[in-house]
Design a protein around this nucleic acid. Structure first.
Lengths: 338, 338
DNA sequence: TTGTTTAATGTAAACCTTTTCATTTTTCAT
DNA sequence: ATGAAAAATGAAAAGGTTTACATTAAACAA
């Protein structure tokens, strides 16, 4: 691989001039510029990112951490952020943490050691204290789906309690009384918040909380299926199920069908996140909107402004603030009782 | 941020020793090691990846390029590769190219300038010559969904022609004669190959090729819907539609439904790729398996072996060779005619 | 012990840029 | 034409690590 030195020799100028041409920052005479560009081309020169970053103490890259690289929720979130960052000419790195504490820490360490200028994190296990400690460095950090009060301006999330409350309330208002709840893993704060929203709604309408209507599982289709079966086997009177997320809801629909019951005629189901397949499955799934794509775009936009002083070219479909009031989308999977 | 020098001073040893402790390569006395580790911890030392990569000419990272970060096909592909790479303790970088030639080149340039030790590329627009030129460097390159003869051992793909042939043949064998074809964008080689497989099957069974049964669109649900409508408006006798991929197929199902027709009673539909939602929608979608996850794992495994001399811990569910014979999964979206 | 081999550690150059500061060249007003 | 100011360029240090080579300390045999 050729280096800047070789380019400078071929072009008959100094290192510094080649660097200036590359970065386009300072004045270089047009004739010189062309000589350098020609030399670069001839040698197939490609700047060494490591050396640049070492010398400049900047990497021109933004790192993102997500739990998984696949899945209907993370995909749009990554895409949104990527689009905004790349359009601004900055580089974008992604690492997956698999929602494991140690791996989350390692992933962040890695992004930091890459000298990322900013970080976008969707973390599931890390404590507020750990996240706060990240702020002490000079790397901008934005958290998605998480609210740490002391980092308020750097957090983007929806009000999970409110979202779950809305979903439950809709069911209550439409005459459902025996509403089951398929919880996500309660080690995750969003799963806990969603549970709390359910409880709040019951309380508001004076509906007794029945522990037998609660089951907990992973945020997956398989576990939704498994856990919904448990629920259906022990309860014959339930008319609706609120699910921790859409994947679980889809598993629940399968379980309901296998029990010879119909969604929504026998049982109404509401998911959470409103991922793309909600509108694809049969019946279409009612859900609480969690605007993953917009969160990605918004996170990136804030970074572009704050770190690079660039006015972002993309904007979100609707304004995104720190804590967003979620909307409920009603589709075929629910019905009102008389 | 603290540096290796500060660590060495605090521990009372030389730079070299700290480096040796970090890398664990050479002999260091146990007592010394502990001193160094303690100093690192005390300072919160984090190695500078740029400096390491510059000095060692290695980055311990593998780069991947995909067209999009979201979507049911790329997600599993990224996940498979990521899992294998990270388990081996190497780092994993992803960039998106948006299936645009210039952006694909830029993305690759970026990964190379990051000194990635190896590249996994899913490219759509680049020429064989360009890809061959990448091989001249000392960076290992693996191509997914692409076969360049001169790089045979570095390519992983399915036989698209064969896949499409199988799907078409199934329909023919089950008495379908008027089989329409929803093509993907013919600038993409896989879309072209799939078209070719369709033609081959017709030819083999002496079914005349009817241009009015062919429409071309993007590989998206929206375009599948749009293009299927065109097809349905001008053809009243078709009984089956072969689609360029699963997204298009889903769009086609919607179009068929809106025309007051039923899948599969009136029209049979087969997709391509067998992404996860095939089994989730109604009717479940028949498709040709394109093992994205396994391709990711296999690509990573080959790199681990060749570049790092590490025996990979993960293996694919079934053996993956360079060009794989695809399987057809028959689900509810097709029926046999009498 | 003494000398020899091996293990542990240290020194300093190298990796490729950026960037400060100094120097040279150009421009332009007089 | 002259000098001052501005623009263009160059020289060299700095950035944090690895690693070849040199040195010192430990281990061990005689």
């Amino acid at each position: 691989m050729s280096t800047i030195t070789e380019v400078s020799k071929l072009a008959g100028v100094s290192l510094a001039t080649v660097s200036r041409v590359m970065n386009g920052t300072e004045n270089v005479r047009e004739a010189t510029k062309e000589k350098v560009l020609a030399a670069m081309k001839e040698l197939g020169y490609r700047p060494n990112a490591a050396a640049r970053s070492l010398a400049s103490n900047k990497s021109n890259s933004v790192g993102m951490m997500v739990s998984e690289l696949h899945g209907p929720f993370y995909g749009p979130m990554m895409s949104g952020a990527e689009r905004a960052i790349r359009t601004a000419g900055k580089q974008f790195l992604i690492v997956a943490s698999h929602a494991d504490e140690e791996q989350e820490k390692k992933a962040i360490e890695y992004l930091l050691s890459c000298q990322c200028d900013a970080l976008i994190l969707h973390c599931e296990t890390l404590s507020d204290e750990y996240l706060e400690s990240l702020e002490t460095g000079d790397t901008e950090v934005i958290l998605i789906n998480r609210m740490v009060k002391s980092m308020h301006d750097n957090c983007l999330s929806i009000d999970n309690v409110q979202g779950s409350f809305l979903a439950t309330e809709w069911l209550i208002k439409h005459k459902h009384n025996n509403i089951a709840c398929l919880l996500g893993p309660q080690v995750k704060h969003d799963a806990r918040e969603r549970f709390w929203g359910y409880q709040q709604a019951l309380a508001k309408y004076n509906i007794p909380f029945r522990p037998e209507l609660i089951e907990q599982g992973e945020f997956t289709q398989d576990d939704g299926y498994r856990v919904a079966n448990i629920l259906l086997n022990k309860n014959t009177d339930l008319t609706a199920i609120i699910c921790g997320n859409d994947e679980m809801a889809f598993g629940a629909i399968q379980a309901v069908n296998e029990h010879g019951l119909n969604v929504p005629d026998d049982i109404s189901i509401i998911g959470f996140d409103d991922v793309s397949f909600c509108a694809m499955i049969t019946p279409t799934l009612s859900s609480v909107i969690n605007p993953a794509y917009d969160f990605g775009v918004e996170a990136a936009s804030r970074i572009l402004k704050r770190v690079y002083n660039i006015e972002p070219k993309f904007s979100t479909s609707k304004p995104i603030s720190e804590v967003n009031v979620p909307d409920l989308v009603i589709r075929e999977s629910v019905r009102e009782l008389e």
